[in-house]
Simulated scan of single mutants.
Amino acid sequence: MLAGLMELDRLRRWQERAGEALADLSGRVPRLLLDCLARHLMVSAPQAETESGASRAAVERNLTLLVSRGIAREVTGAGRFRVWTAAI
């Protein structure tokens, strides 16, 4: 139980850090992607596209932005079928 509480605390801190890192952005897609990353252990571009309602191009562009700001990380290391996770 303690491990679960600690993980929830790490996720809360990540969400706070992510919100601060994206404070200068005005678009809706980065925030929707943060919510998606917070809900799932790993997220693919098609999944994020479906959940956010944004285009594939917008999702991939914003996931790249999240990676560059240290909020997300790409875990597959492949050009196709990539998967991202929160950089907790």
Rank of each mutant, 00 (worst) to 15 (best):
S44N: 15
A21R: 05
R10L: 03
A18M: 07
D24H: 04
A58D: 11
R56D: 10
A23Q: 02
E60W: 09
D35G: 02
S52T: 13
T76E: 14
R10T: 05
L34V: 04
R12Y: 09
Q15H: 09
R80N: 13
R73M: 02
A21Y: 04
A48P: 05
A23W: 01
L25Y: 11
E74H: 03
L11P: 09
R12L: 11
M42S: 08
L66F: 01
A78Q: 08
L65Y: 14
L37Q: 00
P46A: 09
L41M: 11
H40S: 14
A58V: 14
A57T: 10
M42L: 15
E16V: 03
V75P: 05
E49K: 15
L65R: 06
L34K: 01
R12I: 05
F81L: 13
A23M: 00
A54L: 06
R56Q: 11
L32H: 06
P46N: 11
L34T: 01
T50V: 08
S55T: 13
L33D: 00
N62T: 14
R80P: 07
P30N: 02
R39L: 09
L37T: 01
I71M: 10
D9L: 12
G19H: 01
A72R: 03
A57M: 15
S26D: 07
R10F: 02
L41F: 06
R17P: 04
V43F: 02
R56I: 08
A45V: 15
N62Q: 10
T64Y: 11
D9K: 04
A78G: 11
S55E: 05
A21N: 04
V59M: 13
G19A: 00
R69I: 14
S68K: 07
E49P: 01
A54P: 10
L33V: 01
R61V: 10
A21L: 07
R80I: 13
T76D: 07
L22D: 01
A38P: 09
S26V: 10
D35F: 02
L8H: 11
R28Q: 05
R28A: 06
E20M: 02
V75C: 03
A38G: 04
L33A: 00
G27H: 04
G70A: 08
R82W: 08
T64K: 09
R10A: 04
A23G: 02
L41Y: 13
Q15M: 10
R73D: 03
L11M: 15
A18E: 05
E51F: 12
A21W: 01
Q15E: 06
T50F: 12
S44A: 15
S68E: 15
A57D: 15
E49L: 15
C36W: 02
R10E: 05
R82L: 07
L8T: 11
L11N: 13
